[in-house]
């Protein structure tokens, strides 16, 4: 068993070096008790991107992140994160992953004490960078952690995660609890912290908060990844348009939504529409389109 894993690890290291993949999941099965959540799930995450992980409530977004980070063990299948088997939770892997959960308690101590206690576990932690992020987020490092609001705690951990310079950063609903200016600051800070050798996965329901930040997108539905591609891959094939007549008869329409003044439709591009950018495709619509298509056609859009 150990040899299999080790050989798998070696193969995967090769995969990472050639395909630029940092996470690979093959044929993953996972259940909560007798209720299956994932069956034959496959996923590949490439380095240097800010992935958006979208899905309905209970679709398994947090579970997926926990499987990748070794907090949960799959019932079957093969998982690799940065060339490691996550189930082994090796320090070399853990020091390259930072996970910001949706909810978390923090110990009763000052932020400076917390920083001193925890940053030492991350070999590439940058104190100057952390100080800058704290300044951007208007955080007082002398404040006690138990006196901070949820939003302040979240910003502190986000600043910590970004300054840790880990290769993988998992953010689970990072904008929950943030005020409006902080959401903007969040987008700016994450974008500025992004480098070619880092990969972020942001799980969220608040797609409007993530507009222009996350791309590619991963969409989870019915225990499977039904979409793992860039927004461009959709806009290359489809065009968004506002029409005034009911597009019921139009076979090229894959999605329609009643709006003020008509229908917003997404239809397949015709040859005449090459180069026509159409209406901008927002993430919320894209999500709805992909999920609706997946319900109609088994396997979804890829």
């Amino acid at each position: 068993m150990a040899n299999e894993i080790e050989s798998g690890q070696t193969n995967l290291t090769e995969v990472v070096s050639t395909n630029n993949s940092v996470i690979l999941m093959q044929d993953i099965g996972f259940s909560y008790g007798k209720t299956p959540l994932f069956t034959h799930l496959d996923l590949e995450i490439k380095q240097g991107n800010i992935y958006g992980l979208l899905g309905k409530n209970g679709s398994g977004k947090t579970t997926l992140l926990k499987l990748i980070s070794g907090q949960l063990f799959p019932d079957e299948g093969f998982t690799s994160a940065l060339g490691f088997d996550p189930m082994r939770r090796k320090p070399a892997m853990l020091s390259e992953i930072f996970y910001l959960p949706e909810e978390f308690p923090l110990p009763k101590m000052k932020a400076t004490e917390y920083l001193k206690m925890r940053s030492v576990f991350y070999p590439r932690f940058d104190n100057l960078m952390f100080a800058q992020y704290c300044k951007d987020f208007e955080l007082d490092m002398q404040q006690n952690l138990n006196e901070m609001s949820l939003g302040q705690k979240k910003k502190l951990l986000l600043a910590f995660g970004l300054a840790s310079n880990t290769s993988l950063l998992f953010l689970d609903e990072p904008t929950n609890g943030l005020d409006i200016p902080s959401k903007r600051q969040f987008r700016q800070t994450v974008a500025s912290a992004m480098t070619e050798d880092r990969t972020f996965i942001i799980s969220t329901h608040q797609v409007r908060d993530m507009e222009n930040l996350i791309d590619p997108l991963i969409i989870l539905h019915d225990g499977k990844i039904i979409f793992n591609d860039t927004v461009d891959s959709i806009t290359d094939k489809y065009v968004m348009a506002l029409v005034t007549t009911d597009p019921q008869q139009d076979e090229k329409v894959v999605y329609k939504e009643k709006v003020l003044g008509g229908w917003m439709v997404l239809r397949q591009r015709s040859e005449q529409e090459e180069g026509n950018e159409g209406q901008p495709l927002d993430l919320e619509t894209l999500f709805n389109v992909v999920v609706e298509q997946s319900t109609r056609v088994q396997g979804g859009m890829r």
């Binding site: 090796k90 320090p91 853990l94 959960p101 978390f104």
Partner: peptide, 15 residues
């Protein structure tokens, strides 16, 4: 602890 477990599990050290 549902909320507290994550930090410890993800702490870079062996079990």
């Amino acid at each position: 602890s549902k909320n507290g477990q994550q930090e410890w599990l993800m702490l870079p050290a062996t079990s």
